[in-house]
Amino acid sequence: MKQVWFKAIPFEKKLVTLALESGVDAVLAEPQHADAVRALGRVEVFTPEEAAFVALASKADEQTAVDALRDGRKTVLTLGWEIIPVENILAQAKGLAVEVDGLDRALLAAGILERGVDAVLVLPEAAGDLKRIVAGVKLSQGAMPLETAVVTSIKAAGLGHRVCVDTMSVLKKGQGMLVGNSSAFTFLVHAETESNPYVAARPFRVNAGAVHAYAVMPGDRTTYLEELASGDEVLIVSASGETSLATIGRTKVEVRPMLLVTARTAEREGAVFLQNAETIRLTRPGGEPVSVVALKPGDEILVRSDQAGRHFGMRIAEEIKEG
């Protein structure tokens, strides 16, 4: 995951407190203020002497940055960096950080070469943007293309162990997790953001499906729902395809009556096992949740199709058929 650092030079207690509350990963401080920063919260603190600061004024400066990165030093490009030199450095070494003075520059840096820099160092003048920078750089995972599929069948499937994923985030209408029997066809299972006369909303929860199902994870990975655990980061996807991260607070695995839902796009068909209850919902193309109890053949829902082939959750090139 990309990191967000804050430059606490000059030291101002209120700005450091804001940075820690915003969720920064590290604070740059002068040596005499390092302990004062640590007293405010558990966070990594480093000093200017422990990092290499490089101003990109010539081609030779790119090599200076690459050399520092290869030596294992924290390497920061000072304000004024341009995209092409950053691309050149990223192509040769990992671990690069850049100074940013606002949200736009932070998001730009995070997306260079579709990979982005590894860290942004937020300058004091951008402290007002810190919360948005942290959310945009650390939580946002870009966009994921979704497709419309047509439901072909819904049928009872007996009892099975299903997994509730309770996150530490409050999810919104239109958001959920991508889950399916196959990594090549996953359904946008909606979070429990909606209330009904019998059950209150649980907007932190995705009742995701059966233990054997694949869940699409950050970093182009998948995992079995049964393997998810407290502290894991999961990928949250909205109906528009925007993605973000949420951390699992707990999972609940319980035996419940299940339904088998199948759907088809123009090119392929997929299936998912979901609990047979009104509170479990898939997602319509406009972002509206639809309960599995009310779902009918011919209804349109959002799915993601991909190439099959995973080994320990990582993409592999292999001929594979999943049913």
Score class of each variant (00 low, 15 high):
P197K: 07
L188A: 12
S182H: 00
E192Y: 02
F185Q: 00
L228P: 09
A191L: 05
G209K: 03
V179L: 04
A208F: 04
L188C: 09
V189L: 04
G209L: 03
N181D: 01
A191D: 11
Y224P: 01
E194L: 15
S195D: 13
V199W: 03
E227C: 10
N196F: 13
A184P: 04
R205F: 12
Y214M: 12
E233I: 04
A215P: 06
D232V: 08
L188I: 15
L228N: 07
A213N: 10
V189M: 04
R221P: 01
H190V: 09
L178V: 08
D220L: 14
R221K: 15
A200N: 14
Y198G: 05
L225K: 11
I236D: 08
E233G: 02
A229H: 10
V211P: 00
G209A: 04
D220T: 13
H212L: 06
D232R: 02
N207L: 09
Y214D: 14
A213K: 07
V216C: 08
E194D: 14
H212E: 03
H190T: 11
F187I: 03
Y198D: 04
T186P: 02
E227V: 11
F187T: 06
F204Y: 15
G180A: 01
T222F: 12
L178I: 09
L188H: 07
A229G: 10
Y214Q: 13
S230K: 15
S195N: 07
L225W: 02
S195P: 12
V179Q: 06
D232P: 03
A201P: 05
G231D: 10
G180N: 00
P218A: 06
S195H: 12
E192P: 09
G180T: 01
S195T: 12
F185Y: 01
R221C: 06
N181Q: 06
E194F: 09
A229Y: 07
V234C: 02
L178W: 02
N196L: 10
N181P: 00
R221N: 04
A215R: 04
E226A: 14
G219T: 13
E226N: 07
R205A: 15
E233F: 14
A184H: 04
A184R: 03
M217G: 05
A210F: 00
L188V: 12
H190A: 14
N207Y: 06
D232S: 03
T222A: 03
E233C: 04
P197V: 10
E226Q: 11
V189E: 01
A213H: 14
N207S: 14
Y198Q: 13
R202V: 05
N181C: 05
E226H: 10
A210M: 01
I236W: 02
A201K: 15
A213M: 12
A229E: 13
A229N: 11
N207I: 11
I236C: 11
L228I: 15
T222L: 06
A201D: 12
T193G: 07
A184S: 14
R202Q: 07
